[in-house]
Every structure is written in C-alpha cells, then in structure tokens.
C-alpha cells in the first residue's frame, strides 16, 4: 500500500481526526496514597513517643554528648576503624592477587585463609587472641601478654577478619573487568605493575567501592565488639559512665547518635568516591 493510500484509509473507530488533541489522564493510585498516609502516621507516633518519653533523658544525653571521655572513645573508634580498614584491605588485596595467580599453592592458601577467617565469629576470634598467652606464653622472646595488649588484640583480630572479606570484594572487582582490557595493555607493552595500577585497579574500583563502603560502615560499628576485651572505644566509654550513674538509656543514645553521625559522613564520602571512579562510564559528560 502506498503512503498516500494509507493516509486516506479510515481511522480506527476510537481515534478522531486530530489524535494529538486528546488529553492523557494518569490512572489514580489510591493504594499508594493510603500506604503513604499510614506510614506517615506511624512515623509521627514513633517520633512523638521518643521525644516525649522522659526516660530518654535528652538533657543527660546533651550533658555527656561532648564529654571528654566520650570524645576519647569516639576518637579510638575512628582511628581503630581506619587502621583496620587500611590493613584489612592491604592484606585483602594480596589475598585476592594470590587467589587469581597461576600458582596453585598461592591459590589454595588464599582460599583456605578466606574459608577459615569467615568461619570464625569475630567475637570468638577476639577472645582467642586475647587468651593466646595460654598457648604461646612467649612470642619473639617477649611475654605474650605484654606484646598483645587489648588494643593490639583488637587490631590483629579485626584486621584478619576484615581481610577475609576484603579479599573477596577485591577479587570480585578484578573479575568484573573485561579480559580485553588486560590484553590491550599487554599488546601496548605496559608492565605488569602499570597494568595493575593504571588499567585494572581504577576500573575494578567501580565495583569495589560500594561493598567497601558497606564494609567501612560495618567495621565502624563492628569495632564496638572490642568493648568485650576492655578496649575503651565509644561504646565502652559510655558503658563506663552508666555503670557508675545507672543512666543506661541516655548514654546508649549518646553512642547511637555519634555512630549515626559518623555513618552519615561516611555515606556522603562514599557517594563522592563512587562519582570519581564512575568517570568515563556515562555517554554524556
């Protein structure tokens, strides 16, 4: 049929001469509105009860929020998190490289490490390291209890645990890269080191950053577990206060609010890091 004949053919019954003058009315989603209202009401009730329940003792929260001992605990939590993340990812990257290497011994050892340290609960691991002196009373000619102070136990235990997870995150990132990228770099004569730092890692970071951000936030809160071996982190600091004053809830709120603030800051940071590594990923600039 020629286009002329098509234009003159009668339109379908529901389509008038000027179809573009018809107004499109979106269908009403009453269920969505009802759900939104219900959730807002519930939220209002919850917020109201938190603010009006005297037992929260917001004035006590305010008193201790920036007290010296709480801030010292917060500082320890922050640097412990940073140290554990840095060491954990450094060890994790080595484990990932070993797992992806051509050497079967390295591959097996890396696999075994990840299997072992993902199998032991972190609490159990910390207690084991804390009591390692029972197994090895002396390490490097020094009494073990002097070498492995509670804070050293915290760093060692958390790092070994973190590295097992970081290894899998880094390995996943590397596997996400197209084989052709490495071949192109090889064809151009780029050294192994240069291929890793310039080509593989920056591209792998796109898939590494989101789970790493998750791990960072998890670690920040996870460090609170070191309070069981009497390391004075944020949680242990507020516990010291409420063991003395019995103001348990307001002091737990102090810790809660601080953890929330730091997590928020880290989330904003993650957003910007993701944006940085996404460069070149979109078609438009």
């Amino acid at each position: 049929m020629s286009s002329d004949a098509l234009a003159k053919a009668p339109a379908a019954p529901d389509i008038p001469e000027h179809a573009d003058t018809l107004r499109i009315v979106p269908h009403r989603r009453l269920g969505q509105w009802a759900a939104a209202v219900a959730v807002l009401v519930l939220l209002g009730v919850a917020v109201n009860s938190v603010l009006r329940n005297e037992a929260f003792q917001w004035d006590v929260v305010a008193d201790y929020f920036t007290s010296a001992s709480v801030l010292r605990g917060l500082w320890l939590t922050l640097w412990l998190t940073a140290v554990v993340m840095a060491l954990g990812f450094a060890l994790g990257a080595l484990l990932a490289a070993a797992r992806l290497s051509a050497n079967p011994v390295l591959r097996s050892v890396s696999w075994g490490y990840v299997w072992l340290f993902r199998s032991i609960p972190i609490l159990v691991q910390l207690l084991l390291w804390f009591n390692i002196g029972a197994l090895y009373p002396q390490l490097f000619g020094v009494r073990t209890v002097n070498l492995l102070t509670p804070i050293a136990v915290a760093i060692v235990g958390l790092t070994l645990h973190e590295a097992a997870y970081a290894a899998e995150v880094v390995r996943g990132g590397i596997l996400s890269i197209d084989r052709g990228q490495i071949e192109a770099a090889q064809a151009l004569g780029l050294s192994r080191w240069r291929r890793w730092w310039r080509i593989v890692l920056p591209q792998a970071m796109r898939s590494i950053v989101p789970p790493a951000g998750n791990m960072l936030i998890g670690t920040l809160k996870g460090t609170s577990i070191v309070s069981v071996i009497a390391v004075q982190d944020l949680l242990f600091s507020v516990q010291l206060v409420y063991h003395r004053t019995y103001q348990v809830i307001p002091l737990l709120m102090v810790a809660t609010v601080w953890y929330t603030i730091v997590t928020s800051v880290l989330s904003v940071g993650q957003y910007h890091v993701e944006k940085y590594y996404a460069r070149g990923a979109e078609r438009t600039r």
């Binding site: 197209d178 052709g180 990228q181 071949e183 192109a184 770099a185 064809a187 080509i199 920056p202 591209q203 590594y277 460069r279 070149g280 990923a281």
Partner: peptide, 10 residues
C-alpha cells in the same frame, strides 16, 4: 582489536 579495547576510564 575487534572490540577496540580502549581504556574506558581514560
């Protein structure tokens, strides 16, 4: 290469 294999982040 057939698939160019340019480095997309550069």
């Amino acid at each position: 290469f057939q698939n160019f294999n340019l480095f997309p982040h550069l």
